[in-house]
């Protein structure tokens, strides 16, 4: 099932607009992905390993060619191979590639040469805020500090599109929380122009920072909606049924959430709740309880 925002509203002022994107690899196809990132929004990109998140990001950033579809940046269609538009794009890759032999200041100077809008004052402020010594060699930085440096590198030229691919991967919970708070503060300091896309497995991170959620499954975009709507639009119906075969038809029709104790819950649309309850009761289920789902339950059901 798919929750989609109103397309006219999506596409009116999108920073990045992906339409009917197809990309095929042997054994995998990114199919008909349509996604628009509006300024001032943080979109969480969710999906299992191999679902197509990184492929989608690489196609969107022009790093790999796609088979069909279109990608527009501030309304201008992009062709594979063009690179100048990336002066307004900040990207933090999962691997956080940096030149270990360089000092922090040296590395930032190297990167700044490619961005006319590089803001040295803002960069120094971020270095102070994140507590990074500019004279230190990058190889001497901790993993968390490297991630922060990668973020500074992506923010210092005020990009209108910020893409973060698993930015908190490998960070301990304390550093992760700190990183997300700082990320959110920096993003919100200029909310009107910037769109952010965060790809992550950490659902708590997405819940903390994202306004919207896009879920990819087997190369298809199955959900793209405001975070609140994703959760609001569904209900978890827990019940006892013996034998389970009596409710098999219901189980087959709706998304299943299995509890640790082997119990079964259904994830069903909120507007179809009454009909589900009636069917459960008719099938002999009892102790029926209704709850709002967590993002994790929706993710597990759809991913």
């Amino acid at each position: 099932m798919r929750l989609n925002r109103d397309k006219a509203d999506e596409q009116a002022t999108a920073v990045l607009e992906i339409q009917h994107l197809y990309k095929t690899y042997p054994g995998f196809t990114l199919k008909d992905v349509t996604l628009a990132l509006k300024p001032g929004t943080i979109t969480g990109l969710l999906g299992r390993n191999g679902a197509g998140k990184t492929t989608l990001i690489k196609c969107a950033l022009g790093l790999i060619p796609f088979d069909s579809g279109s990608i527009k940046f501030h309304g201008t269609e992009l062709k594979y191979g063009s690179a100048v538009w990336r002066q307004s794009v900040g990207y933090v890759a999962e691997s956080h590639p940096l030149y270990d032999w360089m000092r922090v200041q040296q590395f930032l100077k190297f990167i700044s040469a490619y961005y006319p809008t590089w803001d040295g004052v803002y960069c120094r402020r971020l270095l102070d805020r994140f507590g990074i010594d500019p004279h230190k060699r990058i190889r001497d930085l901790s993993h968390g500090t490297r991630v922060k440096l990668a973020l500074i590198t992506a923010l210092a030229y005020h990009p209108t599109l910020l893409v973060l691919d698993e930015p908190t991967s490998g960070l301990d919970p304390v550093i992760r929380t700190e990183f997300l708070e700082e990320l959110r503060a920096e993003i919100m300091s200029d909310p009107e122009k910037r769109a952010v896309l965060i790809s992550s497995h950490m659902l708590e991170d997405i819940t903390t920072v994202a306004d919207e959620v896009a879920l990819i499954r087997n190369g298809e975009l199955v959900i793209h909606a405001p975070l609140a709507d994703v959760v609001k639009g569904w209900r978890v119906v827990s019940f006892n049924a013996s034998p389970e075969r009596d409710v098999r038809k219901l189980i087959d029709r709706y998304k299943i959430i299995r509890g640790r104790d082997g119990s079964v819950s259904l994830l069903c649309p909120a507007d179809g709740l009454q009909s589900v309850i009636s069917e459960l009761q008719a099938a002999g289920a009892n102790n029926i309880e209704i709850q709002n789902p967590s993002l994790q339950e929706v993710f597990l059901a759809f991913a």
């Binding site: 790093l63 690179a83 100048v84 538009w85 002066q87 794009v89 691997s95 940096l98 030149y99 990167i111």
Partner: peptide, 12 residues
């Protein structure tokens, strides 16, 4: 060193 990806991301 995986920095080729970093270079590919530059506006170049």
């Amino acid at each position: 060193k995986r920095t080729l990806f970093l270079l590919r991301m530059l506006p170049m």
